[in-house]
Structures are given as structure tokens and as C-alpha cells.
Design a protein around this nucleic acid. Structure first.
Lengths: 254, 254
DNA sequence: AAACATCCTGACCAAATGGTCAAGCATTTG
DNA sequence: CAAATGCTTGACCATTTGGTCAGGATGTTT
């Protein structure tokens, strides 16, 4: 029943509205290289907004690291500021407050996720789609490990900021793809496994290498996960999962 | 490197020594029902230690919830105390300090994990062992979701307290079992997949239902994961993973 | 130059943080 | 009874927390 004494569950309005607003564009504001040439600029130091852009990028990157490591409550604005090499006041000048900063990072990560596997149909080859799913998900975790961990920490804590997203957009996303998997099964292209659990299986297996990187490194004894490792893991997962679902590997031409 | 400004990485001595000490017993101190009848009791209210036992249990349970939800830094002693229905001073009276409390919880979880799949040999049937692994791991996550999330949060944050454990005991555990998987492959009992990645795959897939419970519930629209769901998921994972590794399902009698 | 706009940041604040301590309470043992 | 031991807890402390604000710096436009 909600954290004792502590309590998040902030204005869903904020994030949800923004997510809705961003839907389909596949990009969050913060990623646009130069939104509109800074219209309405009648003066000011660095009036074209290059400074803002640079600092915001720096702050977002630092915040992603810190939030990923310590979670929302555990992260302090001070720590983020130091990671970004700026005074705390400056961080708050750009981001308003801690919550806004956090929300913005979540949005950015959701946007990245939304771009994934956006257009598949029953007509596609299961093997190719599944492999593409596994591969792109691995790449996402690989390219944005901190964002991936940030997301994981948010969910771990009961998704106080993302519940709306989970029960809304993401749910639609999953069910749409689940339906396709089901139709494949009906056509005999794969075993009749529960498609939602299959998605969770892929999700968790790929997510693992970002979220539990410390564990993977500790156990394998490596200092870091290399590109070659990622490729091997991708192939391993593809092979096992496809075979496990009764899907013939790609390249066989259908 | 390392969190800016923040910094954990506490005395490894503490946890590591205790883990070593507990090794093989499969139980942490805190779980023993009544260690030794409280010898050396020459007075005091509740001199047999029943009060202590009750309160510690309560505190540990509450702390597990709070730490799991907010992470080490994000959790406050005050919040734990409120969750346990005790004044903060009382919590500190029993647990000494925040770190000690946290370490104790980690130990308890490691002990539970250590008991898993403790004695397998090459002679066992792969299908049965793998199914037992998946099943008991699912049960562990099911029975101790907070502990499971606590562990996950610790790893997510870079395992500041558990690095020694990961590079030590757990690594041995994994490699010992990996070797057996390899021998099975050599004997043609399963495909020659990388055994460590197979263990990670099982780990992540089973862990998912505890750690990402919020996501699973949000997407499936359920209010909770039922026992029947757990059973179905277990079967699903067993089926897909065994088939995916070229292991014939159990019951076939070898 | 004046007006304007953006950027920068130290000083400051109330609240929360982890932790200490002393004083009191309860009970068993001598 | 008194001593000893364990339990309880409010008061207190230094530090950190998220956040505000005023004042200044730096530049552009008119």
C-alpha cells in the first residue's frame, strides 16, 4: 500500500500529457538538434540557444547516470550537478526541479522505445521479426544502458511515474504485437505459446545485459561487455528463443 | 568513475566476512528461530529474547519492502520505522545503523539463493534439472518478491555492496553449473549453447516477474499475479527454454 | 547607449536525513 | 528489596535535501 511516509505518485498530467503529445513523433523535445532556430530571440548572451542546448545535453546525460544508479529518491540534485560539472543552481535553472528533470528523462527513454518494431504485420516472416525484435532491443539496451537502468529502477519502485504509460500506450503496443504472434501460431508458423509471455521473455532477457551488467561482469570476470559479446548474445538468444517457439530460423526463405 | 559526490563501497569486510561465515549453512542468523535460548540472561524485560525476535522480524520485513522500493540511498530509516510501526530510535536500537540493516537483508537473500539447486551432477537428467531450476527460481521470486527486488536494486546500482559476492561465491556457483551443462552438450543431451548465457537467460526470465511486477500487471491489466499464473509461466518458460536448447522435456524417462 | 534577454551562481531556507544519548520503563534474578 | 538487564523513545545534532532569489555577467538588438 504505497510507501510508508514517503509518497510519490505525482501529477500524471505532466508526463502523460507530454507522452501523448509526443506520441508518434518518436522524438522527445530534448533530442531535436535545434528546435526552431530559437525564434523570438531579440538579444541575450548566446541568443541562438547553443549554450542552453549544450548544457541541457550535459545535464540530461549526467542525470541519467545518477538516477539510474540511485533511483529517483536516492539521486540528489547536488550529485547530478557535480556529475555535469555545474553548480546546483545552474541545473535547477535549466530543469526547473528534480521531478521535471526525471520526467524528461523518462520521456526520452519512452520515445526511444516507441520507435522499436513499429510496423510489423502478419505477413512478415516470424523469424525475421523476432530476430529484429531481439536485435534492436539488445541494441537499445546497449546504446543507452543508463536509460535502460533508469527505466528498470522506475519499474522496480512500482512505476510511480509510469503507471499511466504502462496501462496505456505500452499495453497497446504489447497487445498489438501479441495478436500478430497469435495469428502466426494459428497459421502454424510457430508454436501456440502465450504471446505476451513471449514478449516478456524477450524483454527480460535483453534487458538483463544492461540492468544487471554488474552481475554479468562479476560472474564472467570481464571488465566490460564488448560489441562481439553483444553479437554473440544476440545470436544465442535468437537461436534459443526461435527454436523454443518452434520458429524456423531466418534465411530459410519462409 | 563512481558516483559523483555520493559514494558507497563500504567495508567489504562486513558483508563478505559474514557471507563466508554463513557459507554452507544455508541460513543467515536472522532466520534461526531461537538461536540458543538466549544464554547469559540474568534479567531484563523479556529476558528470553522473544521481544527482540518479534521486533527484528518486523523491522526486517518492513525494511525489505522499503529498500526494495526506493533503493539503499532512497530509503530512509524513518520510512522503515513507520512501515514497521515503531519509532525510528527503536529501529536503530535493534539494527545499529542503516547500513547494517541493509547488509543483513542482503545476507538473508543470498542465503535463500544459495540453497537453490545445490546438488546436481552430470548424471542427472538435463530436463529435470533445468525444470527444477526454473521452477525453484520462480518460487523464490514469488515467495520473496521484496527480497528479489532488493537484490535487483543493488545490482542495478552497480552492486556496491555485493561486488565481492558476485566475483566470488556466485561466480563459483554459476561456473560449476555451467560445466555440467557443457558436459551434457558433449554427451549430446542438449545443444551446445553457451551455458553461462543460458543461466542468465533463466535468471532474467524468472526474475522479471518479481522485479518488473508493476510492468507485468500494467500490461496484462491484472491486479495481481496468481498462483495459477505462476504455474503457467513456469510451464511456458520450461517448455520454450528446454526446446530452445534441444533438451527433451521431462517425463520421457531419458 | 539603452533596453533586453539569457546565463550564472553564491547565499539562503525550511525540511528531512542518519545517528546519538540520556532518561525512563519493565522484568527477572539475587 | 536492589541490582542487573533489556526495551522504549523523545530530544537533540550536524549535515544534506530540494528549492528560491537576488544580483551580476555577457551578450544582442534597437
Amino acid at each position: 500500500m504505497s510507501g510508508p511516509h514517503l509518497q510519490e505518485t505525482p501529477g500524471w498530467g505532466t508526463l502523460f500529457a507530454l507522452l501523448k503529445h509526443n506520441k508518434g513523433r518518436g522524438l522527445s523535445m530534448s533530442e531535436l538538434p535545434a528546435i526552431e532556430k530559437r525564434n523570438r530571440s531579440r538579444g541575450g548572451a548566446d541568443a541562438n540557444g547553443a549554450t542552453r542546448e549544450r548544457n541541457e545535453r550535459e545535464i540530461l546525460a549526467a542525470a541519467e547516470r545518477v538516477f539510474a544508479q540511485y533511483g529517483y529518491r536516492g539521486a540528489s540534485v547536488q550529485a547530478i550537478a557535480e556529475a555535469a560539472g555545474l553548480p546546483k543552481s545552474n541545473v535547477l535553472y535549466y530543469m526547473g526541479n528534480k521531478r521535471g528533470l526525471y520526467v524528461r528523462l523518462l520521456e526520452r527513454m519512452m520515445a526511444r522505445w516507441n520507435a522499436l518494431l513499429d510496423d510489423i504485420s502478419v505477413e512478415d516472416a516470424p523469424a525475421e521479426v523476432l530476430e529484429a525484435f531481439i536485435r534492436s532491443k539488445m541494441q537499445l539496451s546497449r546504446r543507452h544502458p543508463e536509460g535502460s537502468r533508469l527505466f528498470a529502477a522506475e519499474i522496480l519502485g512500482g512505476a510511480p511515474f509510469l503507471q499511466g504509460y504502462l496501462r496505456g500506450e505500452l499495453r497497446e503496443w504489447v497487445h498489438a504485437r501479441a495478436k500478430i504472434f497469435e495469428q502466426w501460431a494459428e497459421r502454424g508458423l510457430m508454436d501456440p505459446v502465450d504471446p505476451v509471455w513471449l514478449i516478456f521473455l524477450i524483454w527480460s532477457a535483453t534487458q538483463h545485459y544492461a540492468d544487471f551488467e554488474a552481475q554479468v561482469l562479476g560472474i564472467t570476470g570481464k571488465a566490460e561487455i564488448s560489441d562481439a559479446d553483444v553479437e554473440r548474445i544476440t545470436r544465442f538468444l535468437t537461436q534459443v528463443i526461435l527454436k523454443g517457439c518452434g520458429v524456423r530460423p531466418p534465411g530459410g526463405g519462409g
